[in-house]
């Protein structure tokens, strides 16, 4: 972002030399602003969940229905995928397309495992009769955790699309920026999950 205002900062630097690079930096910054707005969306869903988590309408509360072993496994899977998405960026910076694509595939596979475990959890809850319409607590729970799950699912499709572009075009300034913003997105989703895990699950069963 440093050269967005070349006249104020570096009058000597022409737009010609830095122009393209600036544009990619600006696009990355635009994505960063999206992440911040997404953060605000999640804060609203967290606020709803925290306010309503005691309103179980006579039904079971967090302590009765959460099964922690699966959730803990999910947490470590997502954390590891955040790490592998970082390794993908490192491979890209080293110029290794093979390494980049390999680590991206590991990342989406871990993401798919996470989603698989989450869907299994949701289906099990629904089979036991705990659905989104059972109580205000469960409405808040399914909305918050489900929104995060949808984000992860979208991320899986998105990274797959970037992999296809990498196979076809290689590492160019454009695909490079795309890998960097998907990586930012993925780290962000792990950060949101940390709060879901802590506030919804750990505090729920405490």
């Amino acid at each position: 972002m440093a050269h967005s205002h070349p006249h104020a900062q570096h009058p000597a630097h022409g737009e010609g030399h830095y122009g393209h690079h600036d544009l990619e930096e600006l696009r990355k910054f635009g994505f960063w602003i999206f992440l911040i707005t997404d953060c605000i969306l999640f804060s609203a869903l967290f606020a709803v969940y925290i306010v309503l988590h005691g309103s179980t309408a006579g039904g079971p509360g967090p302590k009765e229905i959460f099964e922690m072993p699966g959730v803990i496994v999910e947490t470590f899977i997502l954390l590891t995928s955040s790490f592998t998405s970082g390794l993908a960026v490192l491979a890209m910076n080293a110029g290794s397309r093979k390494g980049l694509i390999g680590w991206l595939i590991v990342t989406i596979l871990l993401g798919a495992c996470f989603i698989g475990l989450e869907v299994t959890e949701f289906v099990k809850l629904a089979e036991e009769g705990h659905t989104i319409s059972s109580s205000a607590f469960l409405s808040g729970f399914f909305t918050l955790v489900g929104t995060h799950g949808l984000h992860v699912s979208l991320g899986i499709f998105w990274i797959s699309a970037v992999i296809i572009q990498l196979v076809r075009h290689g590492i160019t300034p454009v695909t490079k920026r795309k890998v960097q913003i998907t990586s930012l997105y993925w780290h962000f989703l792990d950060a949101v999950w940390i709060f879901v895990f802590t506030i919804v699950y750990l505090m729920g069963v405490m």
Binding site: M1, A2, D22, E25, M92, N93, G95, T172, P173, K176
Partner: peptide
């Protein structure tokens, strides 16, 4: 494009990534 990542740091106004 490997060169871009490895040698262009000096001129980068870059923020995240690459470092």
């Amino acid at each position: 494009m490997a060169q871009h990542g490895n040698h262009a740091h000096g001129g980068h106004g870059g923020s995240e990534g690459g470092h």
